[in-house]
Amino acid sequence: MEGFETIIFEKKGQLALITLNRPRVLNIYNVRMRDELYEVLSAIESDSDVHVAIIRGAGEKAFCAGADLSEFLSAPAPTFARHVRWHRDVWGLFLNLPQPVIGALHGYVFGSGIEMAMCCDIRIASEDAVFGLPEVALGFIPAAGATQTVPRAVGPGHALDLLLTGRRVGAQEALAMRLVNRVVPRNDLQVEAEKLAEKIAGYDQGAVRKLKQAVSRGLDLPVGSHP
């Protein structure tokens, strides 16, 4: 994975480490990052040596503070933009990865940042993490799945409270509404994420992958046995 500008991709034993790497601009998501993320996720998808992936943000201030708005309004016509969205469906790829993905979240987790976090299977936040979905205040709606992934994680009530108001919530409130699985001190974030990843990586990978599939695909299906 040479020549990447926005992402660092490393393999550490059976773990894949994806680091969003635009720390000077709070790791905001741009077209380049989309393309690089697509390449990285495609590589992980077909790599049976990767048991678990971790996604995190470089620098002290943010996991990812949203989308790079400087690229907005220069985009192609909505018809063509829609075509491109599904032609290289980075979010579909992310959500359907066979391996578990752990999000290690610190600092600003806004907009696309929350959306990337929600593509993960397990989310660990540091105490300084702040979450928010500012899209509606800017005249549009999220487009990387937040209107679907957030309600499925926290229910429609909390989801609309975040989406319609754009209000920010801290790590503890995010934990209470189950937006994240656990909160750890800032200094422990990477260690905790890797510890958890190592633990899962140590299990039978057939079972791990089937388990992930049973849960994620099962949520789209009726349970079937009712009174």
């Binding site: 708005l69 800017l138 005249g139 549009f140 799945g145 679907q148």
Partner: peptide, 23 residues
């Protein structure tokens, strides 16, 4: 659901409010 979100998102590209929001 993701398809629906995408369709509504791109439909909003046609609004003046989106341009105003980003500007």
């Amino acid at each position: 659901g993701l398809q629906l979100e995408g369709d509504l998102y791109f439909l909003l590209h046609t609004t003046e409010d989106r341009v105003e929001g980003v500007k």
